[in-house]
Amino acid sequence: MNIFLFEDDQEDVERLKTTLHVNYNLIIANTIEDGIEMINNVSFDIAILDIFIDGKPKGINLANTINTLSPKKPIIFLTSSLDRTVFECAKYTEPSSYLIKPFNPLELQYAIELAFEEFTQQPAAFATTNGVILQDYIFVKSDKIISKVNIKDIIYVETGANYCDLVTTDQKYLVKISLQKLLDETLKPLFIQVHRNYGVNIDMIKHIYLQDNLIIMENGKKITLSHRFKSQILKTMNLFK
């Protein structure tokens, strides 16, 4: 996941670097000119902006620029001030979250989570389901770090009791959403259900052995094709015959 950071205080940048998980990719700007250029040229998933740069509320200006982007991005304001007037000013850029210095890693993490939840209007999504769905991506929280999972990269979904594992080539992400709901609301039409416990990415199927009721995925995973879903799959697969 890419984070755009606008901060001129080198010590704060260092602190953020060490605080943020290594899996996050940081893009740092320390002048407003750099910032505007980066915003337009680099893709990022969330912006963390210090409100005061050189004692001027340049962060708010930058937020206004970010808000002109399409699609919009979640914004977190970073400030050491607790003064209400500052927040009153910042309010109009509709930031998704605030982070107050000094902060600890948990607070930073929480601010990022909150920003995603607010931005997608899925309140407490990370706490309840472990994931936030934004456009073609699922942002999944695993082990206190948020990973951006492209739905196209998911090979198959395996469900347990009340959770699902999203399996990609190199990772496995856990979300607390039922398989049915996931397939109906998020993964369609890219995925089909092949078994009570499995949904697969149609593009990631390597072979289907109809006699053996077996599907082999791109990563070599063997998935059982159950009778219940066979006819339906055949209907969908008709084209490939």
Partner: peptide, 19 residues
Amino acid sequence: RNKLLFKLTVIHLETMIDQ
């Protein structure tokens, strides 16, 4: 001075206590 930031939000209690 009535200048303190005060904004009601939804707070996940366990998360906040952890923080």
